[in-house]
Design a protein around this nucleic acid. Structure first.
Length: 293
DNA sequence: CCGCGGGCCTGAGAGC
DNA sequence: TGCTCTCAGGCCCGCG
């Protein structure tokens, strides 16, 4: 499912019920996610205080008082749901508040506060892994990730530098998590549209001969910033699986300019183009051939 | 370095 | 109603 705005929406939903709170009990109902849960998964979590809840690219990170970090990835169809049990008296003693028992709830965190946080993932492409904070820099899942697109290091100069000499398409470069970490198919399509750049353009055209950023690179960085900020503000895009942690839908899908709009009119002012779709690197690309050059 | 195809899974929607 | 087919927001691997 989720790209950066959806993961950030989930993080903001989990933060108030996790940060500073004790994990009283953990149910690992299914250990066979994309990777098997570690054998000591439950014992390394129970009794810990979550000292901070962060996000790196599409990963959620929960810092624990033990010095461990819980990494969580939503894969394609993962979601978290928070339910409060007002009747909880003893930490971890309640059963199923409001009778909610959903299929595919694979991991459930019972907080000492009475909050119940369930990880649901029909396709099981998501996963969780506990690593020590000291070993985080060597963690293979995170090691190759490029900069955060909303962070300080990501700017036109940096993007031009890593794209210089790249023969691959701009679309493929932006989907490459080593180039910039957190974009997926939807927001790459939308950012390229906003920047009026063709997904077929060679990535190296973001840099001049000497490696300086072109105006295209500056436009693209601005478009990436804008689309991510707008999507986060809207609570992400809910096409199939993405939900906020309170179960509500995100609504950025209503603001898509090209994604999932094949055959519809281009929304660029004064453009008479029609949104097209084609397969690129095995994924659907949506774009307006008339105004994206 | 690059693109491509296959694999991991389930569910939704389209077409018959 | 139900079957079969295709496709899906991620990411890894091996091949050429």
């Amino acid at each position: 499912m989720p790209e950066l705005p959806e993961v950030e929406t989930v993080r903001r939903g989990l933060e108030p019920v996790m940060e500073g709170q004790v994990i009283a009990r953990v149910e690992a109902r299914r250990g066979d996610l994309r990777f098997p849960l570690q054998k000591d998964f439950v014992t390394r979590l129970e009794g810990q205080i979550v000292t901070g809840l962060g996000r790196r690219a599409k990963y959620l990170t929960a810092d624990l008082s033990s010095g461990d970090v819980l990494l969580m990835h939503l894969g394609m169809s993962g979601s978290f749901r928070v339910v409060h049990d007002e009747n909880a008296v003893t930490p971890g003693a309640f059963h199923h508040p409001r009778g909610e028992e959903r299929a595919h709830d694979h991991v459930v965190f019972h907080m000492a506060s009475g909050a119940m946080i369930s990880f649901n993932d029909p396709r099981r492409f998501g996963y969780m892994k506990i690593v020590s904070r000291a070993g985080l820099a060597d963690e293979p899942l995170l090691r190759g990730l490029g900069p955060e697109p909303l962070g300080n290091e990501f700017d036109a100069a940096m993007l031009a530098r890593v794209c210089a000499g790249k023969k691959t398409s701009l679309k493929a470069a932006l989907l490459d998590q080593r180039v910039v970490a957190g974009l997926g198919n939807i927001y790459v399509c939308e950012a390229l549209f906003r920047a009026h750049l063709s997904p077929k353009r060679q990535a190296s055209t973001l840099a001049t001969r000497s490696g300086e950023p072109t105006d295209h690179a500056k436009r693209l960085v601005g478009a990436i910033h804008a689309v991510l900020h707008a999507a986060i503000k809207a609570g992400g895009s809910s096409l199939r699986d993405h939900r906020r942690t309170d179960g509500e839908l995100g609504y950025f899908q209503h603001s898509f300019q090209v994604y999932d709009r094949e055959g519809e009119k281009c929304r660029t002012a004064g453009c008479s183009g029609i949104v097209k779709r084609f397969t690129q690197n095995g994924r659907s690309t949506f774009w307006c051939p008339k105004c994206q050059k």
